[in-house]
Amino acid sequence: MAVLLIAEINGGELSADLTAKSLTAARQLGDVTVLCAGAACSGAANEIAAFEGVSKVLCADDPKYGNALAEPVADLIVGIACEYDHVVGPATTTAQNILPRVAALIDSMMISDISAVIDGETFERPIYAGNAVQRVRSRDKTKVITIRTAAYDATGTGNSAPVESLSAAGDPGLSEWLEDRVAENDRPELTSAKIVVSGGRGVGSIEDFSLISSLADKIGAAVGASRAAVDSGYAPNDWQVGQTGKVVAPDLYIAVGISGAIQHLAGMKDSKIIVAINKDEDAPIFQVADFGLVANLFEAVPELTDKL
């Protein structure tokens, strides 16, 4: 079967980890062509061509795709979608914005955030914030799917697939990009980091959140936060891990001062090792933690940072 994978491109740069993880799922479906749509994205297209199992890269290099606006990118994809059995992408805010629009335009029912491929028409996906898993079958001619990247390992490199250019579609002119407000730091990206250190309401203030950041920086980790910490203003919203924030699955997840509400667990329970530090021994986080430390975080976290 023919699969079109939408690569995750940000400002002309490839999000290699997210694309490589969705490629792992896409390869289970069939022969993979990758669409690289962006502005000045030919470097990204060449990078994709090196991923194992890619048959071909289509590069649509045009300024109007530079900010991944849903309307023009969806029109581009719809122009070629009928040649494929599956159109897939990572379940990021970019692809989740674009692909349901594509699905409606080709009268296909969107299948979001799949965590497993059973066969070419059967998939598993979490529902109710991960409190249940649904197995669904689609008979739509072209299936439109987003992939929960945390459920997959990244595909390796060592390939040199051909790169073809794809002419841009028309610009529907419905929307216009004004600006990006991106937090600048040197830390690894939350969704692809090997270690994540997250703080919750227990951290107590924006000043004390530096305890979390210092621990993270000591071990090269990304910083996360629970919704309670974000809502209390201790951490910016793009740090939020959970059902309504980011879904992460690092090798090590350290939850500090986080009680473990269902909505937070939905975003991190696929992590390989979970460590919880909380002063309340009855906190639900301890039920999912591999290692729990019942302690005052204001003493335990600096000690841990020192000794690492």
């Binding site: 990021t92 805010t93 002119g173 419905l174 929307s175 004004l178 990006d180 969704t191 910016p236 980011k246």
Partner: peptide
């Protein structure tokens, strides 16, 4: 808009 990397500001024509 709340996007993975932070915030994106867009101008959209009406209706939308």
């Amino acid at each position: 808009r709340e996007v993975d990397g932070g915030l994106q500001v867009v101008k959209v024509g009406l209706p939308c």
